[in-house]
Design a protein around this nucleic acid. Structure first.
Lengths: 276, 276
DNA sequence: GATTAATGGCCTGAGCACAATACCTTTTTT
DNA sequence: AAAAAAGGTATTGTGCTCAGGCCATTAATC
């Protein structure tokens, strides 16, 4: 189940009937309207960095694999090579990739975390933790919605795709294969919603939650998480196949709590290292 | 109920057991990873224009009211006055506001639509209609999720705020009062989710759906829509108060279909005008 | 071992969006 | 008539982005 993030700010019970005043409280019109907060648009470099981080996080590029070259990425993303370089530089700075030069050079996804990554976690995540809790919660809710919608709209072809992904999961022998199968299952569920915008929302949530750290899916060394994920995926599949939206939604919400828990563990480990 | 937007693209039933090939299909890895599509970031002016349009759409500034001055907006949004001017210029171009000069000058929200607005609708909305259908669908789903979550998490204070908004709705005599009460109710439901990020998502959906046209909430001349909305709001409130997440979600999904229907009507009218 | 190819690293110049600032024009208020 | 407050306009500087070329490094190839 998703965890409610914040506490309710105040809550003196309503004792007056002054309607407009309470409407004002509800709307929050004492200050400026909520949409009129300071504007800050993302730079192209930031956007590219976010996308590359997401690509790594969702397993498009597995540990040890090489990202496309700078010139190729510039063509694909339709940006200049300088911008791609800046984005890759950020990935390198937080330890997501390491750069090799020469003929077979490029940005290679790191297999394990470095001290640079751990300190980046401390610097980046700690101040934003309350916000992250809200994002985790929202992600659980959104993924629950995805599963619920998929249960209502899935076709037989969608179910077939999910079964294929589950088979791949069961047969997977390497971490890479498991990661691919995991992404395949989630992709199949998203496709079953019949609405590409939902997929975009789900991906956006992942981007904002992962912050580029390869925490998804599941830990690096223990396969226990993967077994648990397989079991949960099977249950979710059965609920979707049965058209049981409620069951599918509840299971998915619970399933994605895994990510949240892992992030908490990771942060605690990072704090412990910092204390030493 | 939400309308499923697209048709499923292909769907030849799966006849092969070639696992990796089907996984590839599911992942879509024949082309580049989905996150690596061309990048396009929006300008500051566009962001400001979107926000102002949203502010008008959600009733922060009612018809006849004046937006903050250019210098004030520049301070609030932390952008230059030139950028604010460009954004306001766009609102003027599509007929959302009209500009007055002199001491009491400023950008005033127009009371009714102009021909400029209608043609802007034709130019802007028609090419994007398929995408809009998907966004309408997603908005229904998101608002359903909001209501469902609110039903599970609401406090007594949240319920009190909703009741106040409903009372305001019933007592409203002008369109402006109805609009305020409408926004207040939605705001109270959002607050009841206990997660500010959900509010942000809901607002974002509104921004993308409304495209800045003051189509929300409901038509300009007939109060029938408002009566229907009040009845539906009452039902939603009762479901939330009862903690019936399913009922609340279904009702909210249905409720927000209203916006979608109105957009369709509006577009048809715009097309009729264009044909004359 | 020399050559070649593919890659990242680096630099320059141009273009553009934006910010900051000053000043002008219009309209209302005093 | 003067002052005040608002929008309208013009100028200048800065930072981001792009395009292109060249260099340094490494591995594959001859």
């Amino acid at each position: 189940m998703c965890n409610v993030p914040g506490v309710h700010p105040d809550a003196t019970p309503p004792t007056t009937d002054d309607l407009s005043r309470m409407l004002g409280q509800v709307l929050g019109d004492t200050a400026q309207p909520s949409v009129l907060s300071p504007v800050k648009v993302q730079s192209v470099a930031t956007e590219v960095a976010d996308r590359l981080m997401t690509a790594v996080a969702i397993g498009d590029y597995l540990p040890g694999e090489r990202l496309p070259g700078e010139r190729e990425l510039a063509t694909i993303l339709d940006v200049s090579r300088a911008t791609v370089r800046e984005a890759i530089g950020r990935l390198q700075a937080v330890g997501i990739v390491e750069i090799k030069r020469g003929r077979t050079g490029g940005a290679y996804v790191r297999t394990s975390w470095t001290e640079a990554t751990a300190s980046a976690v401390r610097r980046t995540l700690l101040p934003r933790w309350p916000e992250l809790e809200q994002l985790f919660d929202l992600r659980c809710l959104v993924e629950g919605l995805v599963a619920r919608t998929a249960a209502l709209r899935r076709t037989d072809e969608d179910l077939a795709a999910m079964r294929v992904a589950l088979d791949g999961y069961a047969q997977a022998r390497t971490l890479g294969q498991e990661q691919v199968a995991d992404a395949a299952f989630h992709g199949a569920v998203l496709a079953a919603t019949g609405n590409p915008k939902i997929s975009a929302l789900s991906r956006d949530m992942l981007t904002r939650v992962s912050l580029g750290f390869p925490v998804e899916p599941y830990g690096e060394d223990n396969r226990e998480d993967y077994r648990r994920a397989l079991i949960e995926h099977r249950k979710i599949y059965e609920a979707i196949a049965a058209g049981d939206a409620e069951q599918a939604g509840s299971l998915a919400e619970e399933h994605f709590t895994l990510t949240s828990d892992m992030m908490r563990d990771m942060l605690e480990r990072a704090q412990e290292r910092a204390a030493r």
